[in-house]
Design a protein around this nucleic acid. Structure first.
Length: 338
DNA sequence: AACCCGGGGGT
DNA sequence: ACCCCAGGGTT
């Protein structure tokens, strides 16, 4: 089945890939557990950002049992800075279910894979293709974009993509499309003159590379004033509070904070007393759907907080603004920068 | 179908 | 300053 007449892309694609394959850290070991970890991290996150996190994570949690037996806080600490923290919670829960229900083996069955928390259509197909060498199309943003442009359509049909996978070569086929999408057939300003698919690409022939696939406009993000007080006690330990287990930055630790410009509100919300407040330079922290205009203060104080010595900070999952303030106060001292 | 959920890097 | 990314869950 090749209704779009697209299969001509496979030969030049795989020939190009033989000389252009990116040596990414998570491509070195294709055991199912490693692939599962990598694919969770790679959700909406660029591959070069994932690499260092992936290495640290599999070094600390080398197999599914090690991950299943770890504490939620330690898993979250190894995710700190990657974003989308629900992924860490879901991966941890998936590992526990794999141990409890699948004898510690990542399930081969696609339906059993899809039943794991955090495993959607993409991750299930990626594990199938990369770990189990099934002929599946792992339709991430790169693969979708490249195929849509070669076909010159606004969105690629998933059945058409599945029919294009060359039998027995799903791993390199998916990797090749991802590498091409990441390095040449980029979302903006694609490098068509150096592309191995120019002869078969219908968007290139039609000049519609920048129009295909269709884009969705991003909604305007509301700006919220956010006040925080970086409190230290007499021993210069930091005073932290834990965010709720669900929602924005779920489960991470931060300084006593509150919406608005008044640091007293941040203190009162958490029953904290403080003296000698000094204002630190304000900064902006951007989320997917929201912007924090952060007003940080530094103070000496006390109260019902978790008091953490600077040396222990790397073991605590912190929010981005918290890391930023600590680094500013400590003056980029080594060992605090995680 | 429309939201919610991060942060970093390229342009 | 803006755009985009090896998406999935919830409502």
């Amino acid at each position: 089945m090749d209704p779009e007449g697209l299969s001509g892309l496979n030969a030049p694609l795989l020939a190009w890939f033989a000389g252009a394959r990116r040596p990414l850290a998570f491509r070195e070991d294709r055991s199912p557990y490693r692939v599962l970890v990598a694919e969770f991290m790679l959700q909406q996150t660029r591959s070069n950002v994932v690499e260092s996190y992936y290495r640290r994570f599999v070094r600390r949690f080398p197999d599914v049992v090690a991950l299943a037996e770890a504490s939620p806080e330690e898993v979250l600490a190894h995710w700190q800075g990657l974003g989308y923290y629900a992924r860490a919670r879901r991966l941890h829960e998936a590992a526990r279910r794999i141990v409890a229900q699948h004898a510690g083996m990542v399930p081969r069955d696609p339906q059993a894979l899809r039943a794991l928390p955090g495993v959607g259509p993409y991750v299930a197909a990626a594990v199938g293709a990369f770990a189990f060498e099934r002929d599946e199309a792992a339709l991430d943003a790169n693969v979708r974009r490249v195929l849509a442009r070669v076909a010159n359509v606004l969105a690629i049909d998933e059945r058409v993509a599945a029919a294009l996978v060359p039998p027995g070569r799903a791993r390199e086929w998916n990797e090749a499309l991802m590498d091409l999408g990441a390095t040449i057939c980029t979302a903006r300003r694609p490098r068509c003159p150096t592309c191995p698919l120019t002869d078969v690409c219908r968007a290139n022939r039609a000049g519609t590379q920048e129009l295909v696939p269709a884009r969705v406009a991003r909604a305007v993000r509301p700006v919220v004033l956010r006040c925080l007080v970086a409190v230290r006690d007499e021993e210069l330990r930091w005073g932290l509070v834990r965010r709720p287990p669900r929602g924005l930055l779920a489960g991470l630790w931060e300084f006593p904070s509150a919406d608005g410009a008044d640091p007293a509100a941040a203190l009162a919300t958490h029953d904290v007393w403080a003296e000698g407040l000094t204002e630190l330079p304000p900064f902006r922290h951007t989320f997917t759907h929201l912007v924090w205009d952060v007003r940080p203060f530094l103070a000496r104080g006390g109260g019902p907080l978790r008091w953490v010595r600077p040396a222990e900070l790397p073991t605590v999952p912190l929010t981005g603004p918290t890391v930023r303030v600590v680094r500013h106060v400590a003056g980029a001292a080594p060992g605090l920068s995680k």
